[in-house]
């Protein structure tokens, strides 16, 4: 893994990004009569942090599920790294290079922090029954690699001292970070974070922003769904805004901030609403 460059002042200036890593191409998703996503198109470019925002019920999580393969689009397609996702299975989509965290934490609660990360690391391992039973070189090499990766990622997420604790015994913030570590262990090209700061206090949020930047600086592309406007404005390179399942804006944080459509959509919604969604 390359050296960590904690570049905390990189938010302001626009950066150069590579070609699109993932493209939503006119994706529409219907459940029964309800149109959850309506003809949504946008790109996520290599190396950027893209924010996906919108008021409650705008279709952010649906969009997220469509591009991680949990839902199949009714029409349109998602193209990742030049290949359409099609009807690939969920684990295959992960292996293509898309990893995600969950809005409501879904760790393997009765496994240790390290084991959680190892499950992620296993996604690019190949040792099966025979290798494991006879402790063949492949098994040993992968075990060593997996543990090394787990150590690195747990340290990156400030969880090094918790590696042997069960996930359920970690604090809320630690569990959120462990989810990120587990997702990173699958060595994704695109990391999708679903409201990673939900329930965090301002100090924790600040540290999370630093973490997200560090993750990006390690060469990852990040898609971030977030409620907290300050966090989104502070950390993302570009922002896509959804409202009622439609894309209403797409641009730099500074542009989004002054976009009349966005302001209208968020009118009456306080900037500081950083609480979890209330039904």
């Amino acid at each position: 893994m390359p050296e960590l460059t904690t570049d905390d002042t990189s938010t302001g200036a626009p950066r150069e990004f590579g070609p699109p890593l993932l493209s939503m191409e006119a994706v529409t998703l219907r459940f029964g009569g309800v149109v959850a996503l309506n003809d949504v198109s946008f790109d996520i470019r290599q190396g950027e942090i893209l924010g996906l925002i919108g008021p409650n019920g705008a279709g952010k999580t649906t969009c997220f599920n469509a591009l991680t393969g949990v839902y199949q689009p009714t029409s349109g397609q998602v193209v990742f790294d030049g290949r359409p996702l099609g009807n690939r299975k969920r684990y295959q989509i992960n292996r293509l290079g898309i990893a995600r965290t969950f809005q409501n934490i879904r760790l393997f609660q009765n496994m240790t922090a390290r084991e959680n990360v190892l499950v992620g690391a296993d996604s690019h391992h190949r040792a099966g029954v025979v290798n494991s039973l006879f402790r063949l070189p492949l098994h040993r090499r992968e075990t060593a690699d997996g543990n090394r990766l787990a150590d690195e990622l747990l340290d990156l997420m400030d969880l090094g001292h918790r590696s042997e604790d069960l996930a359920r015994n970690l604090s809320y913030g630690e569990q959120r970070r462990l989810e990120i570590a587990r997702a990173l262990a699958t060595k994704p090209k695109l990391l999708c974070l679903d409201e990673p700061a939900a329930g965090f206090n301002p100090v924790e949020k600040q540290r999370l922003m630093d973490l997200i930047r560090r993750v990006r600086d390690l060469g990852n592309t990040v898609l971030l769904i977030e409620h907290d406007m300050r966090l989104v404005m502070g950390v993302t390179d570009r922002i896509v805004v959804l409202e009622f399942g439609k894309k209403i804006a797409d641009g730099l944080p500074s542009e989004i901030r002054n976009d009349p459509a966005v302001i209208a959509a968020y009118l009456g919604v306080d900037d500081e609403t950083d609480e979890e969604e209330t039904p």
């Binding site: 760790l107 609660q109 499950v119």
Partner: peptide, 17 residues
């Protein structure tokens, strides 16, 4: 580990490869 992850949370396991 794969068995255990599957038992704990099948969907999360699947989405982690």
């Amino acid at each position: 580990r794969a068995w255990e992850a599957t038992r704990e949370d099948e969907e999360a396991a699947e989405l982690n490869g």
